[in-house]
Design a protein around this nucleic acid. Structure first.
Lengths: 146, 146
DNA sequence: CCGTTTTCTTGAACCTGTCAAGAAAACACT
DNA sequence: AGTGTTTTCTTGACAGGTTCAAGAAAACGG
């Protein structure tokens, strides 16, 4: 777990101003992987009860643009954020309850970055999402999100 | 391009009732690849001016559930639909103008369907989205969607 | 042709997320 | 430290895509 000082350095290193809301948002994203915006707002407010949701949205945008966090949004889901950036991992999403888990890239370092025919696009990222059922849901147990 | 009779058979084959809105929606999805919901509503109304958007949403859900069309929704985009199903192709999305193109799967038939570590999930689909710039946008020309 | 079931119409609501204006805070410089 | 400039946060309203709910209409089986 990264500490307050680390977050501060991360912000400065990315050329961003250090503010309480940003520190709290960064902490929330590191503490809760794949958290949706609403959860992040909740987590931030436990530390700083007065932050506006707008501040959280702005912070998340700034952090995403700076590459400190990554935004993921599987179809049918709201935006989620995670702190693992730059390590080319992918995600498994449960069709039933929506839970997301990380999956390291099957093929190596930057594998999928080449399409068979790139259609003339200049590709800079390959995103892989595996769809299926999480262990709990495939076992027939009640999903987290009924 | 598939004709009305084909659509009718597709619906029946999938155990769905044949209704005018569904026929029109199916036709619209086949005619316009990667069309967003709004465009589909427009296309359907050119044929059946009185359909409600709700009927289109319901039809799209039914067709998607039946596997006749596929719903795709890259992050930051609204829902889009396509008629190529079951052939394991993927998509390139332009970061600038949002245009989507099809890409045949690089590795073969059902390649990416195996994650290095599936985390206990029972995976049934691997979705790959390549992000980059389309030829027009990377050439610096004005994007379609300024 | 009739009854049952599914689907469509109508109209309203919801929920993320964004826009806009001013107040407050952070940083650079002295 | 103090000050000025720039960025960021607060407040409040708003937007667009999608869903919910109730009743009317249409499709299908017999």
């Amino acid at each position: 777990m990264a500490a307050a000082l680390d977050f501060q350095q991360m912000l400065r290193g990315a050329g961003l101003r250090v503010t309480r809301p940003r520190m709290a948002v960064l902490g929330a994203v590191f503490a809760h992987a794949h958290a949706e915006t609403d959860s992040i707002i909740g987590a931030v407010r436990r530390e700083l009860p007065e932050v506006s949701h707008q501040a959280v949205y702005d912070s998340l945008h700034a952090l995403t643009a700076a590459g400190l966090v990554r935004r993921i949004q599987p179809a049918g889901s709201v935006a989620r954020y995670e702190s693992r950036v730059g390590d080319n991992h992918h995600h498994v999403v449960c069709r039933s309850c929506g839970v997301i888990a990380d999956v390291d890239c099957a093929v190596g370092d930057a594998p999928c970055l080449t399409a068979s025919d790139d259609r003339g696009y200049s590709i800079d990222e390959a995103e892989v999402i595996y769809w299926g059922l999480c262990p709990a849901c495939s076992a027939g147990r009640a999903p987290e999100h009924p």
